[in-house]
């Protein structure tokens, strides 16, 4: 039996990779994709806990379901925004979206 820590470390590393991508990439869509990675990492962790820990059966899994649903919604809206931005500016550079500066 693989210990719980293995799964958690996997989730953690995946999360870090996703974070790296979110911070480092310049294309909005790329950022959204890496965001999904982070969601997945969280899902793994939740499922692992649900499997191993004594917290009530199935709760973690249910939570993952909802994360899935909401992540999907969020991706849809985010991408829609991205497309709208693209239509406006012909480019998807995150650095150019700095209207909130100052």
């Amino acid at each position: 039996m693989t210990p719980l820590q293995h799964y958690l470390v996997l989730a953690g590393v995946l999360f870090a990779v996703g974070a790296w991508g979110v911070l480092a990439r310049r294309n909005i869509i790329m950022v959204v994709m890496c965001l999904e990675l982070m969601f997945n990492a969280v899902n793994i962790a939740l499922a692992a806990f649900s499997n191993y820990a004594n917290l009530g059966a199935g709760r973690g899994e249910a939570f993952v379901f909802f994360v899935l649903a909401i992540a999907a919604a969020e991706v849809a809206v985010g991408l829609a925004i991205g497309i709208a931005m693209f239509r406006l500016r012909e480019r998807l550079d995150v650095d150019e979206l700095d209207e909130m500066k100052g």
Binding site: M1, P3, L4, Q5, L8, V9, A11, G12, V13, F15, A16, V17, A19, W20, L23, A47, S50, N51, Y52, A53, N54, A57, G58, E61
Partner: peptide
């Protein structure tokens, strides 16, 4: 920064705190 996060998470999550039972419980 991300590497640091990975290291930290790995250290924490991999520590003995998260020792769990061996019987799988997912329904």
């Amino acid at each position: 920064a991300a590497a640091a996060l990975a290291v930290v998470l790995g250290l924490v999550l991999g520590s003995a705190r998260f020792n769990a039972g061996s019987s799988p419980k997912n329904p």
